[in-house]
Design a protein around this nucleic acid. Structure first.
Lengths: 219, 219
DNA sequence: GACTATAGGTGTACGGTGTACACTTGTCAA
DNA sequence: TTGACAAGTGTACACCGTACACCTATAGTC
C-alpha cells in the first residue's frame, strides 16, 4: 500500500516543482498562487516543497527564469532589426502565456536564461554597429516598450475590439458623468468597430521605435 | 482621560486614511503595506479602517487615484508635443515618488483623477490633429513606454552609473561564468564611467517616440 | 546480511494577513 | 431625556509562509 504509493507518485524534484509552479500560476494567477496550493497540486504536504526550493522567493526566481527560457533569442543570421523584432514579438507572446511574470522579469535574482537573454540582445545590438551608449539606449527603449505593452495588455484586457470599448465605457460609467469626459466617450463609441487588435497595436509601436533606432545606428 | 484622547486624536475620514496609506506605502513598499500596519500608523485598531473603506482592494483603488491626481495634465496652451512631453516627465516623477503604484496604474477600478487624466491626454492628441486611430496608437505607445520605463527604473535601480554597473556585475557574477556573457561584462565595465542617468535615458527614448508620432501626425 | 548515513516527505506550531460580526461609546436631533 | 446613528473596539476565523522535530525508505560500506 505505502509501497504502491511511492511507486505510483514519482518523486519531486526542483524541476518538477518549478514546472508545476509555472502551470499553477498560469491558471490561477499570482494572487492565488500559494505554497500550500502548489503542494496540493503535487499531491504532497506543503513543507515537502522546501526540500527542493529554499523559500517562495527563490521559487519565484526559478519560475521567472523558466519564462526567460521560453523567449526566442535573437538569431545571428538575421539583420539586427529583424532579429530584434522577432525577439520582441516572442517576448510579448511569452508574457501573454505567463502574465503573472510581467512585473517580475527584471526584479528577481537573475538565472542563467535571464543572463543568456540579456547577453544575446546586447550582443546583437553591438555587432550591428551600435556604439556602447547607443546599444544601451536601444536596449532600454525596446524593453521599456515591451514590458509596458505587456502590462497594458494585461490590465486593459483589450483582447477584442469589443472588450476594449466595453472597458472604456465601464471607466466612464464609473462616475456617471460621461459628458465630462468627451474623449472617453469617443473611445467607447468608436473603438469597438475599429478592428482594434492588440498584436497589431504592439507591432505598430515596435516598428516606430525600431525605425527611430535605425536612424540612430546610421548616425 | 478618554475625553482628552478624543480631543487629541482628530477623527478618521476616508481622505485621511487614503493619505496615510499612500505615505505608508511610499516608505514601506507595497509588500510591507498592511491594513494592520496602516491602522497602527493612525493610532487606531485595524477594524476601524473598515468604516471608511470597504476593504483593502478599494483602499488601493483610492490610493492609485491619488497618484493619478498628482500627474500634471497636458496644458492646452502648449503644442501637442510639448504638452505630451511634460505630461510624460511628470508621470515618471510621480511614479518615482510612489513606486508601489507602478504595476497598478491601469489595473484598478478607475477613479475621477484617472478618468480626467485619460480624457485630457486623448483630448490633447485629438485636438492636435491626430485621427482617432492615430491618437489611440499614439496614446498606447507613450503609455507603454512610460510605464515600462518606470518598471525598469524601479527594478534595475540604475539610479547612479555606479549602481548600474554593479547591478550588471552582480548579475554576471551570479553564475560565476563571466566569460560566457561578454556583453554583460562590457556593461559592467563601461556603464559606471559612462555618466548614465536614468532621467536622461528616459527623455532620450521619449523623444524618439515623439519624433515618430509627429511624423505620423503630419501624414 | 547488518549498520548507518542521508535525502525526501510528514506533522505540528507560530506569527503574520484580511476581514466578518457583535459590541460599546460618543454625538446630535427630536 | 431618549433614541438613532456614526465611529471605534475586541474577538474570532481562515488563510498564508515557514521553522523545527520527526519518520522512513533507500544507498553505501563493512
Amino acid at each position: 500500500m505505502s509501497k504502491q504509493q511511492i511507486v505510483t507518485r514519482k518523486p519531486l524534484s526542483r524541476a518538477r516543482v518549478l514546472e508545476a509552479a509555472v502551470a499553477l500560476a498560469d491558471e490561477a494567477g499570482l494572487e492565488a498562487f500559494s505554497m500550500r496550493g502548489l503542494a496540493q497540486e503535487l499531491g504532497v504536504v506543503p513543507m515537502a516543497l522546501y526540500k527542493h526550493v529554499a523559500n517562495k522567493e527563490e521559487l519565484l526566481d526559478g519560475m521567472v527564469d523558466i519564462v526567460f527560457g521560453e523567449i526566442e533569442l535573437p538569431a545571428g543570421e538575421l539583420d539586427w532589426r529583424a532579429a530584434m523584432r522577432r525577439r520582441a514579438i516572442s517576448t510579448r507572446e511569452v508574457l501573454r502565456r505567463h502574465s503573472w511574470a510581467i512585473g517580475m522579469m527584471e526584479s528577481r535574482h537573475p538565472g542563467p536564461a535571464n543572463l543568456a537573454n540579456h547577453n544575446a540582445v546586447m550582443g546583437c545590438l553591438r555587432e550591428a554597429g551600435f556604439s556602447f551608449k547607443g546599444a544601451v539606449h536601444a536596449y532600454s527603449v525596446q524593453d521599456a516598450y515591451i514590458y509596458g505593452s505587456a502590462l497594458q495588455e494585461r490590465d486593459l484586457a483589450f483582447d477584442t475590439p469589443d472588450s476594449a470599448g466595453k472597458a472604456a465605457l465601464r471607466r466612464a460609467e464609473t462616475v456617471g458623468a460621461l459628458e465630462n469626459y468627451p474623449y472617453l466617450v469617443e473611445i467607447a463609441a468608436k473603438l469597438p468597430g475599429s478592428g482594434y487588435d492588440s498584436a497589431v497595436e504592439f507591432t505598430w509601436g515596435l516598428d516606430l521605435i525600431l525605425d527611430g533606432l535605425e536612424r540612430l545606428r546610421r548616425a
